[in-house]
Design a protein around this nucleic acid. Structure first.
Lengths: 164, 164
DNA sequence: GGAAGATTGTTGTTGACGACAACAATCGTC
DNA sequence: GACGATTGTTGTCGTCAACAACAATCTTCC
């Protein structure tokens, strides 16, 4: 079994022993093909790398973008609410907000209603910046379209809509 | 703008100020919906967690499973070849193989053709174990079907086939 | 044949990220 | 007013990707 080695491209001559195969180009994945998780993982890596590169000039990573977007769309939210909504741990959100606050994109305002919590808002500077980020994110989304096709991207969003 | 707050479930009465919203159930994501990367990330987290739980009894994580599968399908591969094929860094593969070798699932055999490299093989114990792992992985895949639907899973695999 | 450059496995460091536990301040409830 | 729960914070731990450096070995080129 396992003799799926359909050799193409006689690049280097199989050396001497039977141990050596072709270097990297024709390696069967066997059961891995057919696993949704594997395909999704590889795709997710690709998509994040493109996002990071496309938003590289403004130094915004996917998680930061998601936080800014949610705050922008729902000003006054508490850290707990944002963390729950995005599936981020509140401990982690603390550092994310520290960074965004240092960059003057976000403000933590002590809530009068609940003095434990902070109401999160974008600064005016943050609003302007987010507008720019959204343009770049849209460009990134076009890269996705170029990669898998417009119709496939639509279908993908539809299939995964349940994960919000 | 941003007034997409379509309130349902009058759970707690909006307290006093206008700052408080409902707690966590109806928060707009704004631009985040429509971003493939966000949906894919959330889905990938879900799918990995289910994989880890389903293969929890045998203590095999997704990356370990992918390594075992590729070695099983292509015995004699070098570490470099496996790393390239799976998109893992060779530095990281070292530790993965250390662990798998300690568990007597994988052997590193010094290649005679290239004395720098190791030919990777499953042990007989490893082959038997992998068969069991594949059964559990198939069960996990059924969970995915239950979650997004059989047809959608097929379509997903088709769309992402290019990422191997 | 031998020097120069590339490759393989290994070790180590860094930074992003998720999971958990502890803590003080505050809230809600009884 | 006391007790339990919640919020933000700090810290630790383990996973994972990205780099850099290194010794051993291979390949290539003169």
């Amino acid at each position: 079994m396992t003799a799926t080695a359909a050799r193409t491209s006689p690049r280097k001559r199989a050396s001497n022993g039977a141990t050596r195969r072709n270097d990297a180009d024709e390696i069967g994945l066997d059961a891995l093909v057919g696993h949704a998780g594997y395909a999704v993982r590889r795709f997710q890596i690709w998509i994040f790398q493109d996002f990071i590169k496309t938003l590289g000039a403004v130094d915004i990573r996917p998680t930061q973008y998601s936080v800014l977007t949610v705050i922008g769309a729902n000003p006054g939210l508490s850290q707990m609410a944002v963390a729950k909504r995005l599936g981020i741990e509140r401990a982690r959100l603390v550092h994310l907000l520290d960074s965004l606050e240092q960059r003057r994109l976000v403000k933590r305002i002590k809530s009068k209603a609940d003095r434990r919590s902070h109401a999160l808002h974008l600064t005016t500077q943050g609003e302007a910046a987010l507008a720019k980020f959204k343009q770049l994110a849209a460009e990134h989304e076009r890269h996705v379209e170029d990669k898998i096709g417009k119709a496939n991207r639509e279908r993908l969003l539809q299939i995964l809509a349940g994960f919000t």
